[in-house]
């Protein structure tokens, strides 16, 4: 093929390659795919101590990621932390008796929220599952290493 055509085609391929690289960066590397496609509902929970929990930390049920933490705010009155999270629309969690705990990934890893689902209660049929705006009543605070050590020392002393 003549030189001009070769030049044009290779420049076109070059630009396509760049575009592809950009797409890979967006989708695979920054995980934006999740962010874009997530259509979710917001629920919140109050914790007395969130430990090292950060925004965008995963929210899991039985270890499977079903959402993210979107906001962490200090409640002015009770001075506890209100954590707002966005859960995927297709995941339904029973409203009654569900609890949220803050766990740590591995031993030194970052914090995340694990929701333990409650019972599907016959009585509250009109509000069986968590929906937007709900507050998860039962929460367990993060396990802080210093507290554990303090407890351990206390027990040893005894």
């Amino acid at each position: 093929m003549n030189k001009q055509r070769y030049v044009d085609i290779s420049v076109g391929l070059f630009m396509l390659l760049g575009l592809l690289a950009l797409l890979v960066m967006v989708m695979k590397v920054s995980g934006m795919a999740d962010l874009i496609s997530i259509k979710g509902y917001q629920v919140s929970a109050d914790f007395t101590d969130i430990g090292g929990l950060k925004v965008r930390a995963p929210v899991t049920v039985a270890g499977v990621k079903i959402g993210e933490v979107t906001r962490i705010e200090l409640q002015p009155g009770a001075l506890n932390a209100k954590v707002t999270m966005k859960l995927r629309n297709d995941k339904r969690i029973p409203y009654e008796d569900s609890s949220a705990r803050i766990l740590t990934e591995g031993l030194l890893g970052s914090n995340y929220i694990s929701i333990v689902p409650g019972f599907e209660d016959e009585e509250s049929k009109d509000h069986p599952y968590l929906r937007s705006g709900d507050v998860i009543a039962k929460t367990q605070e993060a396990i802080i290493l210093e507290n554990l050590i303090g407890q351990l020392l206390f027990n040893i002393k005894k």
Partner: peptide, 15 residues
């Protein structure tokens, strides 16, 4: 490998 990467990389700040 990929999920840790995706969790840590923020499009605006990094890419």
């Amino acid at each position: 490998f990929w999920s840790n990467m995706q969790a840590a990389v923020n499009f605006r700040l990094d890419v």
